[in-house]
Nucleic acid binder design. Structure first.
Lengths: 169, 169
DNA sequence: GCCAATCTACCTATTGATAGATAGAGGAGG
DNA sequence: CCTCCTCTATCTATCAATAGGTAGATTGGC
């Protein structure tokens, strides 16, 4: 359903949003990344708000499905979450996309804010479905997002492992 | 040493950065908030980079000194940290300023990135000075920043208390 | 007179977005 | 096979608004 170009646009937008946030990327930058003109980006995604919202929704879907694939026998549920977040951290985009968006939540266009919030709501829902209390689910997700933030700002990926070490216990 | 106007400029800049990040505010917006022209903002802070870096440094100083004031008898060290972060959350700016900046760390001008990183380094140093292991310090700070992020994006301040409930134990 | 502080006015670059032209693919009908 | 039409996807060119930053005049207190 999505053309090759639309896919490449979303890839470029995801990379840039994870690095610089919603107000830190432009249509022309995305277009240059993909190798087209900015008008072509508008053809596939009429507004910046819609582009960012589409990218956030795709990110959420991919993240939740990646989580399912980390659930292997002999590994606790929380270990699977740690692994999934660590993979997101070590990919070329360093931060969680919805973490970056969520940090400036009060300045986002509505559509984008809703998608960012949805990521966290679905994560909590999933954690609770695995038997965690609401409080424990919130604590786990906060610890994982905070660990990514610290690793990012300190420029040291091993900080993520240190920060999440006690979660598995 | 700092004029009244320079102070008001930093106040406005801090509010806007906490809401929208480094690329989410402009000299003209700050000027309008304060009630002067944008050229006057440039007079006090020649570049955007220097303004943001100054704001981040002041935020760090204020935060660390606020921490000291939360250290009352009969309250554990970690309870003081939770209280200090909760105060930052409930102020008009919802997120931790250095948390917002740190999320887009890889896109910041160098001076600003250094100040954001410094906030986290000093926080860790202080936690370790109170007897926490490095790992425990990292876990605590990650949990607090993550708790702010979740409360912010979910639009529910009580999430912060839920997320930090187990830290005091 | 001097100096800090503010102003008006402007510069160049970039922003998100739109209009309109163009090129090519794929049918439909003769 | 050929012509006409439509649709998709891209382009060029442009818009008004806003960005960060600068030059130079003005104001008012010491």
């Amino acid at each position: 359903m999505l053309s090759e170009t639309a896919d490449a646009i979303m890839d470029a937008a995801e990379r840039r949003i994870r690095k610089a946030g919603y107000s830190g990327f432009s249509f022309r930058e995305i277009a240059a990344d993909v190798g087209v003109k900015s008008a072509s980006v508008h053809y596939h995604f009429p507004t910046k708000e819609r582009l960012a919202a589409s990218v956030a929704r795709r990110y959420t879907e991919r993240f939740l499905s990646a989580l399912d694939q980390e659930a292997v026998p002999g590994r606790t549920e929380i270990e699977a979450w740690i692994t999934a977040f660590r993979r997101a951290l070590h990919g070329d985009g360093k931060m969680c996309l919805c973490g970056v968006l969520g940090a400036t939540s009060h300045d986002l266009p509505e559509e984008v804010m809703i998608e960012a919030r949805r990521f966290f709501q679905l994560c909590l829902e999933k954690l609770e479905k695995r038997g965690l209390s609401h409080a424990k689910a919130v604590q786990t997700l906060a610890a994982l997002e905070g660990a990514m933030l610290l690793a990012n700002v300190l420029g040291d990926p091993s900080t993520f492992d240190e920060a999440t070490a006690s979660l598995a216990a």
